[in-house]
Design a protein around this nucleic acid. Structure first.
Length: 587
RNA sequence: GCGGUCGUAGUCUAGCUUGGUUUAGGACGUCAGCCUGCCACGCUGAGGACCCGGGUUCAAAUCCCGGCGACCGCACCA
């Protein structure tokens, strides 16, 4: 859509380029478009796949994390258990005069001094009453508020045509992992720690998403839930990366109104208690590295600690990894939440399934267990019809306390019933405690795939001699190679097509282009970020060599056609650089 | 949701104030052909647009109303 007001900053330029070249655009354009939905074109979907592949390579291949794919729709129970049904319905009030809208819960928290937990339980009527009671007025103009209303940011649907079963579109992929925990734990051969990754769509019915790929109503999330024993929180990868630096913006500084970056090594961040879990720190390092590899320098990244009231309901500590983008400033690209045992515990409560794991103790402990057994032969005559009730009360009583009282006073008062030693039998059993059941803790790195695509594009974008080029890291470039005949005659196209075919068969993503002039083709390929251009010239016909052109420097080297597969494979695996591809070529 | 700005080919735009001269003009891109011995050369040709609906009028891209959408700001973003 044409618009002068949108200006021509990088965001606008990239969105325009993305639309024109087929990276992505707003969905449903023929019906005027709908905000918050994007369609990826051929180049964009490839770029996105490549970025996601990078995370898979790291997490699944290198760290052995399990990948799953679960449904987007879940029965309401799942999100009741997870707490989303309560937390995704934000109570809003609108000022009757100036029409400004506010979060009712935030207003009450700030001015009413009511705890988050209390507010959460309140009905709309109670919220209204509380607002009136505390005489809360519009912070903008001082007028009264209208009726509070809840805005549900989850997409709600029905499961089955006539069913009353309510379902929700998942706002995160994480729950798909938690609900399958038992089976996944078995598949992981009942060993901790282990992690599960899910990459998939998530839905959030945002009120007004107007930032292109940055805020979508349907987006791709990459949730990694990493389960570990809270009593053994040590990360075996730490030794390799403990010296690596992280740029943190700590909540204590945020509270003071400072935008101060604390640059510390992982080691230090942990010892000083800035980051609560080792695994969390390690994943933050990986997240940083991934962004560096996508082209975002460390200085343009930071981890910002969320304040208690900014945090999601399930987290006791959260860092957002932010990247600086030109139009929007610091934008979250990943979140790192320490979810503790919150989710598994809640699903355990709501489903009744045991989500605990069992671990054997290194040194099994022998424990004495005290049991008090009622002696019915004595209870019966003494308590008559109430004997059964008393008996039950005895089994529920604290055995240690009962025994102590009997020894000391010679009786024990169970409510109004006086228990004497004849009424009970005291048993001491030696039991061997071999292990214990517990709920694992979870740290969650969670990436927004679409945002990674956007920042990759923004950081790849540059101008060289008035020409736009996308300087993608070579391993995420949607198209790897362009093959061109220098001119369209004298057998050059035929030769170039042969080279093209050979490279396609070798598994490269290659494009053949013979339109216009060679310079135009180079320019076009630069704009879609093809790292290397292979040109067949007259020399090629004589000695089976081609030139290889580097997108970023525009330099060229000459190499043997038959050596291309090997050279190029090494190049795209970052094993060799452009200069190693052949001998310098000057024309 | 509110306020402001705005909506013309794939993209950027001219035209709108003052309705008719428009078969809606240009540039870039695209396609076909020629040309082209290395960085968007040139030539010939082709295809491609007034957001949607209603109204006013002899006549609407142009004026009015409504809808939809976009951008910016506010609010929201678990």
């Amino acid at each position: 859509m044409t618009n002068k007001a949108k200006g021509s900053d990088k965001f606008a330029i990239i969105n325009e380029l993305a639309r024109r070249r087929g990276f992505f655009w707003q969905s449903y354009e023929i019906y005027g478009g709908v905000g918050g939905f994007a369609t990826y074109g051929p180049l964009g979907s490839k770029l996105k796949q490549n970025i996601e592949k990078k995370l898979r390579d790291l997490f699944v291949n290198r760290l052995g994390i399990l990948e799953i794919e679960s449904p987007i729709i879940a029965p309401s129970k799942v999100f009741e258990a997870s707490g989303h049904v309560n937390h995704f319905k934000e109570p809003m009030v609108e000022c009757l005069k100036c029409k400004k809208r506010f979060r009712a819960d935030h207003l009450l928290q700030e001015t009413g001094k009511i705890s988050v937990w209390e507010i959460e339980k309140m009905s709309l009527k109670e919220l209204k009453a509380a607002i009136e009671k505390h005489k809360i007025k519009c912070p903008e103009c001082g007028s009264a508020f209208g009726e509070p209303k809840r805005f549900l940011t989850m997409f709600k649907t029905m499961i089955g045509p006539y069913s009353k079963a309510i379902g929700y579109g998942r706002p995160e992929a994480a729950q798909g992992i938690f609900v399958e925990f038992k089976r996944l734990y078995q598949i992981a051969r009942e060993k901790l720690p282990f992690g599960v990754l899910q990459i998939g769509h998530a839905l959030r019915n945002e009120i007004s998403p107007r930032q292109g790929l940055i805020r979508l109503r349907e987006f791709t999330i990459m949730d990694l839930e990493f389960f570990f024993d809270p009593e053994e929180p040590n990360c075996f990868l730490l030794k390799d990366i403990k010296k690596e630096k992280l740029r943190l913006l700590l909540s204590e500084d945020k509270l003071k109104g400072l935008e101060k970056i604390t640059e510390v090594s992982v080691e230090e961040a942990l010892s000083k208690g800035y980051i609560k879990a080792e695994w969390q720190a390690v994943f933050m390092v990986f997240a940083k590295r991934i962004l560096v590899e996508l082209g975002v320098p460390e200085k343009k990244q930071r981890f910002i600690e969320k304040l208690p009231w900014e945090r999601a309901h399930y987290a006791i500590q959260s860092f957002d990894q932010e990247v600086f983008v030109e139009r929007w400033g610091w934008v979250e690209v990943s979140g790192h939440a320490y979810r503790t045992d919150y989710d598994l515990k809640r699903h355990m409560e709501f489903s009744g399934e045991d989500m605990r794991v069992y671990k054997e103790l290194e040194n099994p402990r022998e424990k004495e267990k005290l049991t008090i057994r009622p002696v019915m032969a004595k209870l019966g005559p003494d308590f008559k019809s109430e004997a059964a009730k008393v008996s039950e009360m005895i089994t529920k009583a604290n055995p240690e306390e009962l025994e102590r009282s009997l020894n000391k006073k010679g009786f024990y008062m169970l409510g109004k019933y006086k228990i004497v030693p004849e009424h009970v039998e005291i048993l001491r059993q030696k039991i061997l405690e071999r292990g214990k059941h517990f709920i694992p803790h979870v740290v969650e790195p969670s990436f927004g795939s679409d945002r990674l695509v956007y920042v990759t594009l923004e950081y790849a974008y540059r101008i060289k001699e008035d020409r736009a080029l996308l300087s993608f890291p070579r391993d995420v470039a949607p198209i790897q190679l362009g093959v061109y005949p220098l001119v369209n005659k004298d057998g050059l196209p035929e030769k170039a097509l042969e080279v093209h075919k050979m490279l396609v068969e070798e598994g490269f993503r290659v494009e053949y282009d013979d339109s216009g002039s060679i310079g135009r083709r180079y320019a076009r390929s630069d704009e879609v970020g093809i790292p290397l251009g292979i040109t067949v010239d007259y020399e090629s016909l004589k000695n089976d060599t081609v030139t290889i052109r580097d997108r970023d420097s525009w330099k060229q080297v000459r190499s043997q056609i038959k050596e291309l597969p090997d050279l190029l494979n090494k190049f795209f695996q970052w094993k060799i650089n452009f200069e190693d591809l052949g001998i310098p070529f000057d024309n």
